[in-house]
Design a binder for these strands. Structure first.
Lengths: 233, 233
DNA sequence: ATAGAACTATGTTCTAAAACACAAATATAG
DNA sequence: CTATATTTGTGTTTTAGAACATAGTTCTAT
């Protein structure tokens, strides 16, 4: 499904976070081993139970990391935006993937063999700290998420997701419409609720003039209120 | 509240995971900067919103890492057993703690300044990998936990917690009693349910001859069934 | 040793959210 | 450009689990 990218890509820019920590020798090795792949909307990037091989950096597009749970119900664990790294946790833990990743929309992803990354960071304290920091931030978010998803009510969880999507992917030119085209089901899977509940609650938000919807496009009318609902419910 | 430990402790044994990766110079620095503190039952070890200073290694006792959520309801995020490290995530993420830690029972904890650890691992690839691996494993557990806590029903969540406690702290000499003395409330906070539900469900398990209870002591009678309940509910 | 506090147990009521059902509106493939 | 599949929207029913109430029991601190 994925196809190789033919255009020349400037890795020093696209991988700048990592690039700037490397020596010339390391940069050359990286250039020789990095592959850039294209994925289409809904393509799978990796699967639960696969063995991790590559560090992935999202160059373009939007990716969801999710986990299938009880009775096929799926939970979106985190979403990836361009310039972010993913797919490396399982390798470091010496485990198979416990999550799967798929493309919300057409994506360009850079794949770098994890062996190479591990080799680099054994010698490169800054790079090691970079990964330690990413993992630490993500673990903090995961801890927070456990409490939000289990303790907040439907309204609070959905409001939190909308704000989270806005933070992650930003707004369109009108300064109000969240820049992602999501099915209600994905919104539900992100917020730990049924699709009906996502639809219903979204309608309620519209009636309360907190948001406006036009098909799958969601416009935030009253961000203040949305924050409040996210906190209080 | 915490008191300094007077007895001499063999750090090379108690911190062996880290110790064996260090040079002689590093070991000397570690010895000069490590402090060993005693905590009594229910003592707080660190608090939400505090700035992290030390890497902590639990030498003796049992610790819970928890987070207070909506309406003061508390969620136990993870539990710590002897020889495990904790308290370092927030430092690496350059954040205040998002969790708190307290002692289930009398504990001995070794505190090592995080500045020292960071300094070591910048130069020591193995030590860096050690932390990367711990964080990666914990992040995988957290991802798994989000799904368990949100999708499993009360019975499944409680069964999972009992098995988890058994894995973490082991069994007593009889080969059946879980080696921890927990209030029903803690069991509830671990399993994301109300105390009443923990009590009621525990009673049900007793009636079904899956476990036996004697006060706070829980004996696993039919581990097979417990696994099944954890999966199916 | 004993009073008071905290914990455990169990029954009852209430409610948020899931499950189900179906119609209408949109996407997508041929 | 249709035809079919998928997604969205709403009303209704059901249910798991929270909330509440109260009593008995076991800690724990003085």
């Amino acid at each position: 499904m994925p196809r190789k990218k033919k255009d020349v890509i400037d890795l020093s820019y696209s991988l700048s976070d990592i690039w700037r920590m490397l020596t010339d020798v390391e940069r050359e090795k990286l250039r020789n081993n990095a592959r850039v792949l294209q994925f289409r909307k809904n393509d799978l990037i990796y699967l639960e139970d696969e063995w991790p091989k590559d560090l992935m950096c999202l160059f373009k597009g939007k990716v969801k990391i999710y986990k299938s749970g009880v009775g096929g119900r799926s939970q979106i664990i985190r979403i990836v935006r361009p310039m972010q790294y993913f797919g490396y946790r399982a390798y470091f833990a010496r485990e198979q993937y416990v999550t799967a990743a798929s493309a919300f929309e057409a994506c360009t992803v850079c794949m770098i063999p994890m062996e190479l990354i591990e080799q680099f960071l054994r010698e490169n304290g800054n790079l090691a700290l970079f990964f330690i920091q990413m993992l630490s931030v993500d673990l903090g978010i995961a801890d927070q998420r456990v409490v939000s998803l289990t303790q907040k009510h439907v309204r609070g969880r959905l409001a939190e997701s909308l704000l989270f999507l806005k933070e992650s992917y930003g707004l369109e030119e009108d300064g109000a419409t969240i820049n992602i085209y999501l099915a209600r089901e994905d919104l539900a899977n992100l917020s730990n609720m049924t699709t009906s509940n996502a639809i219903r609650t979204l309608s309620n938000f519209v009636n309360e003039r907190i948001i406006a919807i036009d098909g799958r496009k969601i416009k935030i009318i009253d961000e203040e209120r949305l924050h409040k609902v996210s906190r209080i419910g």
